[in-house]
Design a protein around this nucleic acid. Structure first.
Lengths: 189, 189
DNA sequence: CCAGAATGTACGTTATAACGCACGATTTTG
DNA sequence: CAAAATCGTGCGTTATAACGTACATTCTGG
């Protein structure tokens, strides 16, 4: 990725246009001079983080939206997926994975369907720092161990936990357990 | 929220420590002088966005992680939720909502279970620009209309679509339809 | 039509980011 | 143990962010 200055220029100009503000009005709102706002929009200057914060705060927009690419057209497309058609069986037995919506940097998470077959019992290594996981049980019973504590989840129950620590999954029943899981990576993956 | 300079200082120092890098080594990696890295870490200077980009790129960390609050301790706690216990019935009939994990700014999304009762048929106003929705049908059959096209989702099927346009939900069957939905807001909510 | 207001840009001035280098303290090496 | 290397900080210099102001152009209302 190249210097974010150009993306910032476009985004600032677009936000101001969306809000139908002149540079004068925008300067009043943000506390940043209209001359500087104009320079940023024309890509002639790269503001400090503090100045960008003043702009984002004045416009009531998140800082991130000024520096990360906007939602790509790909994400705006409607995509339908059927878990039964894309389920995969990795080398490691007992677990099947349907990557319904793989990781997208603009969303910050991946969305999977997992099937833990009867008898599954395995640890998962800690993910990168800050990773958060959410699991909802659709069918069956699944136990998840995090921070030394086992949580038994039945159909309709959900768990959110820190995925940046070692954790474990166990299906001690005689039937498969099917879950939906969202894994959020704050620093990308 | 206050000036992000202090958060940036802490984060930069922590990232460098995690990677076991001296200021010298970090300067080599990022192309930013060690004197400047030191000033940023001590909160004595607010870098330009271009300089911050060089730092993030050199460290192979996302820009956002330097300017948004780190995952709060609240998010790291293990939380179990049962949809049956928290399901709500809003004024508007035919739809029940279990807010399993409400919106968190650090995740950027909310995670809900929805039950569309038999006969439900209603439009949903467009969300803010950039919003992306994901829906997975757990039980029953649900139809979702986006961009003028109806998509029929049966059990095990999922849909991702742009939530910043008018869309509609319909359950034309004689039974309830239960879904999990993730709604991602790029600019917060 | 005309005067005043609004708009965005250019320019000179001021403040501060960003740098290279020196230095004292600490750690490493032979 | 002494010398060399490394470390983080402070300082002066340079480059540029950020500002206030002037100006040409366009718009608006009487």
């Amino acid at each position: 990725m190249k210097d974010p200055k150009d993306h910032l220029a476009q985004t600032l100009k677009q936000v101001r246009k969306d809000k139908k503000l002149s540079l004068d009005r925008a300067a009043d709102l943000t506390g940043v001079s209209k001359a500087m706002l104009g320079q940023i929009e024309r890509g002639e200057s790269s503001p400090t983080v503090s100045t960008l914060w003043k702009i984002a705060t004045g416009f009531e927009v998140s800082l991130s939206s000024f520096i990360e690419p906007t939602t790509s057209q790909n994400l705006k497309k409607t995509v339908a997926r059927t878990a039964d058609e894309i389920r995969q069986h990795p080398a490691e037995g007992g677990l099947m994975i349907a990557p319904l919506f793989p990781y997208e940097s603009q969303l910050g998470f991946e969305y999977l369907e997992l099937v833990f077959q009867a008898g599954y019992d395995r640890e998962s290594a800690a993910h990168a720092p800050g990773v958060i996981e959410i699991v909802t049980v659709l069918n069956g019973v699944l136990e998840i161990c995090c921070e030394g504590i086992w949580h038994k989840l039945e159909e309709g129950q959900s768990l959110r936990f820190a995925g940046d620590k070692p954790h474990a999954y166990r299906n001690a029943t005689g039937e498969d357990a099917k879950v939906i899981t969202v894994i959020h990576y704050p620093n990308g993956r």
